[in-house]
């Protein structure tokens, strides 16, 4: 598709283990257009996380190709950001320093990184937590900080792997109420893996994953 952020073409991933070979993703093909809001639905173990890691370039497919036609050579963190299910803040850095990190990896100046990180935390109502360490945050706070870290570099695509998987329903809704408008404002695309249909309902498009097979409607 012309102008697509990401294209996966017949992508498969097999994990070779001593007992048996596990096909986590089977012949998946998809395209992510700009500003898309896609929910990747499926039960646990269906291959959602593996597919997201393949789409984000964190893992290499056994066969098939993943390309990012709009990004050029600089994929992460400038154009593509990840949010994970588990706590993935760096424990030795404060909230503010965690959020600054993607900007520093892009080579931003210290003052610029600090200013933009503060703005991102402000946007998500986390400014008061700036100096806290990750271990001092609640689960919901930590995930919001992780999203702030993902969004601070204004990436064009966010791949979120069950970011509210460990939160209760109410907290998860609060989380999306805070995060999704910001994503929309930025015009970033998001592919959000979840097994929660109500979360999926908040997205404009829904893909399904079953036993490693990706079903993309239309």
């Amino acid at each position: 598709m012309n102008g697509a952020l990401l294209t996966a073409d017949h992508v498969s991933k097999v994990f070779y283990t001593p007992g048996e070979d596990v096909s986590a993703v089977r012949d998946a093909s998809c395209t992510v257009p700009p500003a898309a809001r896609i929910a990747l639905l499926g039960p646990s173990g269906s291959g959602k996380s593996t597919l997201l890691q393949l789409l984000g370039g964190l893992d290499i497919p056994t066969s098939g190709t993943v390309t990012w036609p709009a990004f050029g050579p600089d994929v992460r963190p400038r154009n593509l950001a990840f949010v994970f299910q588990n706590q993935t803040l760096i424990p030795a850095l404060s909230v503010l320093e965690n959020v600054e990190l993607p900007l520093q990896l892009q080579g931003a100046s210290n003052s610029d990184a600090r200013e933009r990180a503060r703005a991102a935390l402000q946007r998500l109502g986390l400014r008061a937590l700036s100096d806290k360490l990750p271990e001092e945050l609640s689960g919901g706070q930590a995930q919001r900080v992780a999203f702030a870290r993902a969004l601070v570099g204004e990436p064009r695509l966010i791949l979120a792997d069950e970011p509210t998987g460990q939160l209760d329903h109410h907290t998860a809704n609060e989380f999306f109420d805070a995060v999704l408008p910001w994503i929309e404002e930025r015009g970033s695309a998001i592919v959000l893996a979840t097994h929660d249909r109500t979360v999926g309902e908040r997205m404009s498009e829904r893909w399904t994953m079953r036993f490693g097979v990706l079903e993309v409607p239309g």
């Binding site: 964190l58 992460r76 963190p77 400038r78 950001a81 990840f82 994970f84 993935t88 803040l89 760096i90 424990p91 030795a92 990190l101 993607p102 990896l105 892009q106 870290r149 993902a150």
Partner: peptide, 11 residues
């Protein structure tokens, strides 16, 4: 911690 650093884009 280093895996996270890589995941968020460290070359």
């Amino acid at each position: 911690a280093f895996a996270i650093l890589t995941a968020i884009g460290a070359k």
